[in-house]
Nucleic acid binder design. Structure first.
Length: 259
DNA sequence: ATGACTCCAATGTGGAGA
């Protein structure tokens, strides 16, 4: 089975591209971030015609996450329970597979703006709350996949300019420590389970021909639990949609698990 | 370069993203 994650930077603007991508890549589940629309405007019907059900968690203007799936998603949770977060950043649900229940957690992690900002402090709190929740989620759901736009470049090789950007947002030690703390829960970066091309990124700035010059960051990730690790067959970044007219600034990441 | 590009809310221009 295949699970994908894609920050589409407005589902209103990108719906046609999402449908085209799904037609070419009929994954079992697609996790979206930055819907930028309220739930009453979510395009359930267009997605249903494409063969996907959706659990959405949106808000006006900013944020918003959804899980699209070919088969029903159950036990859906919106945001980290008890977190009182006013921003729509997490949606989770369970898919029943031939190998048992698979818990899927989709996050639009806080950007954090700058290391000395209030938004960065919020990012740190948010990451801690996610970590604390996932610790218990993993006990309840040994087969768990955490996907999303993490807004963290975990290592220097995940940035086009690790020296020039050292200590700036996405590159700070605090953010990387949080990423490592997620791995320490018993999660594995699916992309790094395989040999990958150098300079592999999932996001490129719209400005200054960022994509054309491959000045990007690898900040969209798929983490799999220990129980799922032996099942992972591949993990790839699909750069093709970034070449579309009016693209999202992020590319989809896809993991393939043994059937 | 407090930039660049894109989206949103809104019709002025600024916030936010990363």
């Amino acid at each position: 089975m295949q699970i994908a994650t894609w920050n589409i930077n407005s589902l209103t603007v990108r719906l046609a591209q999402v449908l085209a991508w799904l037609a070419a890549n009929p994954v079992d589940a697609l996790c979206l971030q930055e819907l930028k629309l309220t739930d009453d405007k979510f395009p359930h019907e267009a997605l249903r015609e494409a063969g996907y059900e959706a659990a959405a968690f949106g808000q006006k203007t900013y944020n918003g996450v959804a899980i699209l799936s070919r088969k029903p998603l159950r036990d859906v949770v919106r945001n980290v329970p008890g977190s009182e977060d006013t921003q729509a950043r997490v949606i989770a649900g369970t898919l029943d597979t031939p190998h048992g229940a698979l818990r899927l957690v989709n996050g639009y992690f806080v950007n954090g703006q700058a290391p000395d900002s209030e938004k960065f402090a919020y990012k740190m709190q948010w990451l801690q709350a996610l970590q604390d929740w996932l610790r218990t989620e993993l006990v309840a759901h040994p087969q768990l996949v955490l996907v999303g736009d993490f807004n963290v470049a975990p290592e220097d090789r995940d940035s086009y300019d690790p020296i020039g950007l050292a200590g700036t947002i996405h590159h700070t030690q605090e953010e990387r420590d949080h990423f490592q703390a997620l791995l320490a829960l018993g999660l594995h970066d699916a992309y790094r389970l395989f040999e990958q091309p150098e300079k592999s990124y999932s996001w490129w700035d719209y400005r200054m021909l960022g994509f054309q010059k491959n000045r990007g960051l690898r900040i969209d990730h798929i983490l799999v639990s220990e129980a799922l690790r032996p099942s992972v067959r591949a993990c790839t970044i699909d750069r093709a949609p970034r070449k579309n007219p009016q693209p999202s600034d992020h590319a989809p990441v896809v993991v393939t698990l043994a059937d």
